[in-house]
């Protein structure tokens, strides 16, 4: 029966990421991925995994009731991180300590982990609050399945961005700078509408 439990929480995980109502996940991934060419697909996968890593850490810490966070801060941080990631993409070299044409890979990775940390809180709240007495032994399966579902959902989004990039670069002959500008503008727009909501 545990395979059924696993499948259900896996489903909860990827549906959470792919749900159009939770498009802030997508906006963030899009902003992070904007500066990479299709050939750099490994980086895209690592960014999705970084998010899952952060997400898992919070889920485990908060699920086990080690940390709790006020939510208004979280709500506010999400669009701000998206907007800053998007702006960072288009800042010219040499400004504000920016060294190269592609943003610092380590920063992008850490930012994805940080964003994942924030996002993990919503689900951990559910896990903690709704754990029925006697169900503790199932918590680990739930956490694992949900996080793998999250990762699966992220990879689907990254695949979508990658396919778009292939079309843009190979068929549309779009320049890297135009692509970065277009995608960053798109996610900045989403972030601003989230901040105003």
């Amino acid at each position: 029966m545990d395979s059924n439990l696993f499948a259900t929480y896996f489903q909860l995980g990827y549906q959470h990421i792919l749900d159009p109502a939770g498009y802030d996940h997508m906006a963030f991934l899009i902003a992070l991925c904007a500066v990479y060419k299709p050939e750099e697909w490994k980086k895209l996968i690592w960014l999705a995994t970084a998010f899952t890593l952060g997400h898992s850490i919070t889920l485990i810490l908060a699920g086990l009731d080690i940390i709790r966070l006020p939510g208004n801060l979280v709500e506010w941080l999400i669009p701000v991180t998206i907007l800053l990631a998007a702006i960072w993409n288009v800042i010219p070299e040499g400004k504000f300590g920016r060294k190269s044409s592609s943003p610092n890979w380590r920063s992008a990775f850490l930012l994805a982990v940080g964003f994942g940390l924030i996002h993990g809180l919503g689900f951990s709240n559910f896990l903690r609050s709704s754990l029925f007495p006697g169900e503790e032994s199932k918590l680990l399966v739930q956490l694992l399945a949900f996080n793998l579902g999250i990762e699966f959902g992220q990879l689907i989004i990254v695949l979508g961005i990658w396919i778009l990039a292939i079309f843009a670069f190979r068929i549309g002959k779009v320049q890297q700078t135009s692509w970065t500008l277009f995608i960053s503008g798109l996610s900045a727009g989403i972030a601003i509408s989230l901040m105003l909501a």
């Binding site: 940390i67 006020p70 939510g71 208004n72 991180t81 940080g114 809180l121 709240n125 559910f126």
Partner: peptide, 26 residues
């Protein structure tokens, strides 16, 4: 952001309940 999150630990359960986290509706 990490620093500001650290500042808020530990927060009271009441605070969490009232604010509502980045909600997961289930």
């Amino acid at each position: 952001s990490l620093f500001s999150t650290l500042l808020t630990i530990p927060s009271s359960p009441e605070e969490v309940a009232e604010d509502g986290l980045h909600d997961y509706h289930v």
